[in-house]
């Protein structure tokens, strides 16, 4: 934990934005291992793939576009420091009333959680309690989250997308080809690895009922494999392999799949997202519902992350081109 503080302080001090991005990756990995020590395996899984992987990558692409040095102007940080310290002191004062770490009788552990732990096996029949809460008891919340992610994907599309001319496309792909010959070993190794990464993503997707994992993590891992491919073989090749319209369509299909399960359970006489009515046997219905909505989540997350990365990467190509033309 103390490491986390060190890294955070380093982020404040370092001026080089490239180093800041790398440090934030380290920070993500550290907090993921912290989550494991606190028994939150699902959360650690997500944080490792998101915090240490994808968001660092996005930061690096942004830094590549905006320049890596920070022009530090020393204006008065005293006021800011004062605000920060007063708030911090008040918060620490508040923690004096908190239950101690690991307390079994803490109020947070007494209210709804025991019911989930005791009854979820009988009602849902899924080993992983996190999955059953995520996908069944609180399916409505999760639906909201998926829609938020979908909206973010649309937002990035609206901000960064553009229509490219075919002659630009040709120039860009010729750039990429010359770059490839230098990275032969990396290319071959990753060519071997990518199918396994995709397979692992599918395993995480469908094994979420029994172990840690689920749609969110699987989607991110799946997208990471595609991004690896795009980085090593160039955007032109990746764009030919993965059609953008297809990706955008499937992001919507993922969200719709989730919503349709809710509508289907309504049509069968239950409430929205009440899976008990999906099948003769309530537990089998729950299984079916969870499987389908996790699939919807996985598809939506993977496609949105791919959309976000492709749009960022395209921007890099374009800004490089503008610079070339000026010279």
């Amino acid at each position: 934990m103390t490491f986390l503080i060190c890294v955070a302080v380093a982020i404040v001090r370092v001026k080089d934005l490239f180093a800041v991005a790398m440090l934030s990756g380290i920070y993500g990995l550290l907090s993921a291992s912290l989550f494991i020590t606190m028994d939150a395996v699902d959360v650690a899984f997500t944080e490792a793939s998101v915090g240490a992987g994808i968001s660092t990558l996005l930061m690096l692409t942004t830094v590549a576009m905006t320049g890596r040095t920070e022009h530090y102007v020393r204006h008065k940080p005293l006021l800011a420091l004062l605000v920060v310290f007063v708030t911090g002191a008040l918060l620490i004062y508040a923690t004096l009333d908190m239950p101690y770490f690991g307390d079994v009788l803490a109020p947070a552990n007494l209210h709804v959680a025991p019911r989930y732990i005791q009854d979820s096996m009988r009602e849902i029949g899924v080993d992983n309690i996190v999955t059953s809460v995520l996908a069944s008891y609180r399916a409505f919340d999760t639906f909201g989250e998926v829609v938020v992610i979908f909206t973010a994907g649309i937002g990035v599309l609206a901000l960064l997308s553009f229509t490219r001319r075919p002659e630009d496309d040709a120039e860009i792909s010729s750039d990429n080809i010359s770059m490839h010959e230098q990275n032969m070993i990396v290319r071959i190794v990753s060519k071997i690895l990518i199918p396994f990464i995709l397979l692992f993503a599918l395993y995480v997707q469908f094994h979420g009922d029994f172990g840690p994992g689920g749609g969110f993590q699987a989607g991110v891992i799946f997208a990471a494999a595609i991004i690896l491919y795009a980085m090593l073989f160039g955007m032109g090749v990746a764009r030919r392999a993965i059609n953008q319209t297809f990706v955008q369509l499937f992001a919507a299909v993922g969200v719709l799949l989730y919503g349709m399960v809710g509508v289907a359970s309504m049509l069968n006489g239950g409430n929205f997202l009440d899976y008990n009515v999906l099948s003769e046997d309530p537990v089998a219905g729950q299984h079916l519902g969870i499987l389908i909505i996790e699939l919807g989540v996985g598809i939506a997350v993977a496609m949105v992350v791919i959309i976000i990365f492709f749009n960022f990467a395209d921007r890099i190509d374009i800004s490089k081109h503008k610079a070339d033309k000026k010279i």
Partner: peptide
């Protein structure tokens, strides 16, 4: 077992934080 409810909340929050970060960075680029 440790309490599963906060895990669920944070799991989804992490993915949403990815979405907000991406949106913020897109704004920075513009």
């Amino acid at each position: 077992y440790s309490n599963p409810l906060p895990h669920v909340l944070i799991l989804t929050a992490i993915v949403v934080s990815l979405a907000t970060t991406a949106l913020g960075l897109a704004l920075v680029v513009r």
